[in-house]
């Protein structure tokens, strides 16, 4: 019991770093994020630059991932595609958190009919398959990456409503929240200062897993032509055009497919590691 004080967050970080697969996931995610941010500087070629002399060339030193049916450099397109995927994952889930968590906490703390109405709406939305709802919304909003992201955000929010509500209900019954009430905390402060910080860990875990889902959803929407619009690169739309050449030019499908696989796996591993690190059972003593 000496030296620097040990905050709950720091202890969780220590547990997370002991988790090898989670750290691997974190590293992969970080690399993809870097790729997305640095794409203009590290991409060997312009992802939109077509070339009639280099159509569907297999991977070579000149084009590490080969070229596509219009002679564009696949590596550059995968790097730029990371932008659409990471943006879709991170931004849409952030928006989903911003929509879902306040509503969920409100429902959990308010109780009564407010809670009943909110919970039923969230349940109704959750009963529709994630992708179907996202496709319906995206189709309704019109084909564009921004609309796809919005559709994914709305579709992903009810899970946060339900999670935040459950955790808030649980927190409301704890002694420390009652103690906070006994001290004279107004309701908004109970929610913001005492409930919210204590329910962040499970939300963070869910957010990480939701990002993986959102990336798949973005790829799917782009595959269907509802997301990123050509010629701008996206892993989903690359896969779509690759399917026509699956036997002649498999590299067109392999690299964007691998990228999706890796990034989704990495987010899931990270989520699992976070869950273990933030487990409240490890929190005591």
């Amino acid at each position: 019991m000496s030296g620097a004080s040990d905050s709950p967050g720091r202890r969780a970080l220590r547990r997370f770093l002991r988790h090898r697969l989670a750290v691997f996931g974190l590293v992969v995610v970080a690399l993809f994020l870097l790729a997305a941010i640095l794409a203009p500087w590290i991409a060997p070629a312009d992802p939109l630059q077509t070339s009639w002399t280099a159509i569907r060339k297999p991977p070579s030193l000149e084009h590490l991932f080969g070229t596509d049916e219009n002679g564009r450099d696949v590596l550059s397109r995968v790097l730029y595609g990371a932008r659409a995927s990471m943006a879709a994952g991170v931004i849409s889930v952030s928006v989903a958190l911003l929509i879902g968590v306040p509503i969920g906490v409100l429902a959990g703390l308010a109780g009564g009919w407010v809670d009943a109405v909110i919970a039923r709406i969230a349940d109704a939305m959750l009963s529709v398959p994630f992708l179907i709802l996202a496709i319906a919304l995206a189709a309704f909003l019109g084909p564009a990456l921004e609309n796809a992201m919005l559709a994914i955000a709305v579709t992903a929010s009810p899970i946060f409503v339900r999670l935040a509500r459950g955790m808030a209900l649980e927190a409301r019954a704890t002694d420390w929240v009652e103690a906070a009430r006994a001290l004279g905390n107004p309701p908004w402060r109970l929610g913001l200062v005492h409930v919210l910080p204590n329910i962040i860990p499970p939300l963070l875990v869910q957010a990480t897993l939701s990002i993986a889902e959102a990336i798949i959803a973005e790829a799917s929407l782009s595959f269907l032509g509802l997301g990123q619009q050509p010629p701008a690169p996206s892993w989903g739309s690359m896969l779509n055009s690759a399917q026509r050449f699956l036997t002649q030019a498999p590299w067109l499908a392999v690299f964007p497919g691998l990228a999706i696989f890796l990034v989704v796996l990495a987010f899931n591993l990270m989520g699992d590691g976070l869950r273990d690190a933030l487990d409240p059972r490890g929190e005591r003593r």
């Binding site: 704890t174 002694d175 420390w176 103690a179 906070a180 910080p197």
Partner: peptide
């Protein structure tokens, strides 16, 4: 219960 009455965060 002093283990439950203090906000862990």
């Amino acid at each position: 219960d002093p283990f439950a009455s203090l906000d862990p965060r």
